[in-house]
Design a protein around this nucleic acid. Structure first.
Lengths: 144, 144
DNA sequence: GATTCACGATACTTATGATGTTACATGATT
DNA sequence: AATCATGTAACATCATAAGTATCGTGAATC
C-alpha cells in the first residue's frame, strides 16, 4: 500500500482500482477493500464515475508509515504473543510477563521508527535515487 | 512450550505427551510434533515405553527464550515484511528499504532481549513469586 | 436521459496454514 | 506376551486471507 500511495502521489489525476490492481498483481476488489482503511483515515479520497478513482487527500508530510500501517488494519505486529493473557497457572504467568516485557520494548522501538518516517520522506528518497541514477546514466552515455 | 519446559523442570520423572496435552488443552500428537524441535535441539529427551515420556536434557541456565523460539520453529517474528524482496519497481525498493531498516532494528532488540533470559531465570522468578505468595498466605492464615 | 465508468458493499468461493485426529509401527518396561 | 509411550504418516477440520461474482449508486459523457 505504501507502494501505491507513493505512486499516487506522483500520478496526475486519479488512479483506478483496476490500474492499482494490475500494479500489485491482484484484483480491484481487494484493492478497494484495503484502500477503504486509508479512505476512512482520510489519507486518500475516492471518486466515482468517469475519470474517477483514487487520489491522495492528505499532506504527505503528515502521514507516517505507522499511520498507514494502522489505517490499513494491521494493529498486530508480532507473530508471537500471549495466547492466554491471564492464565491461572503461575508458571504461565511468569512466562507471559517475560515475553510481554520483551515484546513491548521491541514494539515501542518499531512504532517509534515507523512513526518517524513520513511518506514525504520516502518520496524524497525516491527522487534522490532517481536523480543519481539518471546522472549515472548520463555519464554512461557520455561518449568516451 | 516455555510453559511446558518449566513444568518439566519441576516435575519428578518424565512427563507423557498426554499429560502435557491436557495441560495445554490440546492433544498428544500436537505436543510430540512441537516437542520434536526441542528434542532435535537437545533441550529435551524422550523415552519410550513404561515410565517413558519427556525430560529436560539441558542446563536451564544455558537455554534462552530465543533458543526455545528457534527450536520450536518460529524464525519469523513480525507479521509484516517484504513481500517482494527485490522488486523491479524503484518506488517499492525505497519502501522496502525503509521498512527493512526499522524491522531489523526492532528484531535485533527483541532477539537480544530474548537471548538474555534463560529458563533458569524464569524458574527463579517463579520460585520467588511462590515464596511471596505462600508468605502472604501464611499471614492471611494467622489467627487475628 | 441513456450509457458508460468507477467505486461500495455483500456474499460466495478458493487457497493456505495451523491444528486436531486416526492409525500403525517401534522400542522399553513389566 | 502385554502394556505403555513415542515416532510418523495420512487425513480431517478450522480459521484466515485472498480472489471472484454480482448488484447498487453516483458521476461524467454523449
Amino acid at each position: 500500500m505504501l507502494h501505491v500511495l507513493l505512486h499516487m502521489a506522483r500520478h496526475d489525476g486519479p488512479m483506478t482500482s483496476e490500474e492499482i490492481a494490475r500494479m500489485l498483481d491482484t484484483n480491484p476488489v481487494v484493492v478497494r477493500r484495503t484502500m477503504a482503511g486509508l479512505r476512512d483515515a482520510g489519507y486518500v479520497r475516492s471518486e466515482k464515475g468517469h475519470g474517477g478513482g483514487w487520489v491522495i487527500a492528505a499532506d504527505l508530510q503528515a502521514v507516517t508509515l505507522l499511520d498507514v500501517h494502522r489505517a490499513v488494519g494491521g494493529p498486530r505486529l508480532f507473530t508471537i504473543g500471549n495466547e492466554h493473557p491471564n492464565a491461572s497457572c503461575a508458571v504461565e504467568r511468569v512466562v507471559n510477563e517475560a515475553l510481554e516485557s520483551a515484546l513491548n520494548e521491541a514494539e515501542a522501538l518499531l512504532i517509534a521508527r515507523l512513526g518517524r518516517v513520513s511518506l514525504a520522506e520516502l518520496a524524497r528518497r525516491f527522487d534522490e535515487r532517481c536523480s543519481i541514477t539518471s546522472r549515472e546514466a548520463a555519464v554512461a552515455d557520455r561518449p568516451g
